[in-house]
Simulated assay, not measured.
Amino acid sequence: MHTSSRCTYGRRRILSTVKKSFIKFGKKRVSKIMKKLNINSAGKPKFKTTTTKVDRQAIHFPNLILGDFTSYKPNQLWTSDLTYISTKDGWVYLCIILDTFSRAIIGWSMHDNLKNKLF
C-alpha cells in the first residue's frame, strides 16, 4: 500500500485501508510494522509562498470585459499577469502585458521584490 501510493500513505491511511478489508489491526500494530520496515510517509510542504496582500484602501476598478477576451483590432484589449519565479539567488517577479488580438507581448518588467512598482 505504501509503495503503490508513491510513499504518501502514513499510519492513518494504511489503517483505514486495512480496516476496509475487514482485517482487524490497531494503530499501534500498524505503527510497529511501519517502524520495523522503516516506512515513513511523505510530509506536507514546509511552507507555502503567498504574495497576495489585500489593500483595503486601494482603488478597485470594475471588470469591464467579463471574461470575453476577443478583440477585433490591435491595441483594443490588453491583459496583464504577474508571476513569481524561484531562482538560485531567490524569488524574481515577472509582469507582462499582452495584446489579446495579436498575442504579442507589449511590455514586461522584472524585479526581485513586490515593493517596487513593476510597471
Score class of each variant (00 low, 15 high):
F101R: 02
F25R: 09
T8I: 14
N75S: 06
G26H: 08
G90S: 07
K28Q: 14
L94H: 00
H60V: 14
K46G: 13
K44P: 01
I65E: 09
S80R: 03
P74K: 08
S31C: 04
P45K: 15
K44I: 06
I14H: 01
Y84D: 04
K28I: 00
Y9L: 02
G67Y: 10
L118M: 12
L66P: 00
L94N: 03
K20Y: 04
F61I: 13
G26K: 10
R6E: 15
M34Y: 06
I65K: 09
K36Y: 07
L77S: 01
C7L: 13
T83I: 08
T51D: 00
F47D: 12
M1W: 03
G67N: 14
K24A: 13
L114W: 04
K27D: 08
W78E: 04
V18Y: 07
W108M: 05
I59Y: 08
K46C: 11
T70H: 06
M110C: 12
I105C: 08
I39T: 12
R13W: 02
Q76T: 11
S109A: 15
T49Q: 11
T50E: 15
N38Y: 10
Q76W: 07
K46F: 11
R103H: 13
K27C: 10
R29Q: 14
S4P: 02
S80M: 08
K117F: 08
N116R: 14
W108Y: 15
L114P: 00
L64S: 06
W91A: 03
P62Q: 02
Y84V: 04
S71Y: 01
V92E: 01
F47A: 15
Y72E: 06
R56F: 10
P62L: 02
K44H: 14
F69V: 13
L82Y: 00
I105M: 09
H2S: 06
